[in-house]
Amino acid sequence: MIESILFYIFAGILLAAAIGVITARNPVHSALLLVLAFFNSAVLWMLLEAEFLALVLILVYVGAVMVLFLFVVMMLDINVAGMRRGFARYLPLALIVVAAIIVQLALVFTSDQFGAQMLADLERYPADYNNTAELGRLLYTVYVYPFEIAAVILLVAIIAAISLTLRRREGTRHQNVGRQVQARAKDRVRLVDLPRRQGEGDK
């Protein structure tokens, strides 16, 4: 009972935050509302006893991804008004498309093959059951092959990102760290003997 109440509270905040993300006029507000949405979905996972995933969601998405996102949003000059141009013009078409999608999905999901009655009751584990340990065990035993492929995908992402961004262009200034480190005082400072002119020393 109490769980249902908690679920509806957090799910309600989640939906409100998600709507706020796409309707907020200020991009920074959107990003912060997205943080709120992530927090609430983490709580929903917690209600399902998936505590590891809940914590990872907060650590990775809120901690790393959203901070990066906020930096980018603050650095870019996003023209919200420009992006909203044509809103009224496309609205009727968008509404028709959305209505069609909703009707289609409703037809499928209201059929007797979907719904809560199709799902088994949530299996409650004893208090000493360790979700994290179980995930780790499965990852390194049963799912070790997909796990390794995921690792290769991350390696490829690194290679691709570096190969696309690291390049020498004409006209860009870049540091040559090796030369900087090897520089000595005599490369930077030149001592010159200036002959003294007649009459200057009198002043």
Partner: peptide, 25 residues
């Protein structure tokens, strides 16, 4: 023979191809 490997293999292949298309910056 498994949806997980199928999807991961597809992503591994596609990710390389996306980067290769952009090779000429």
């Amino acid at each position: 023979p498994h949806l997980l490997t199928l999807y991961l293999g597809l992503e591994l292949m596609s990710l390389c191809l996306y980067a290769l298309v952009a090779l000429n910056r």
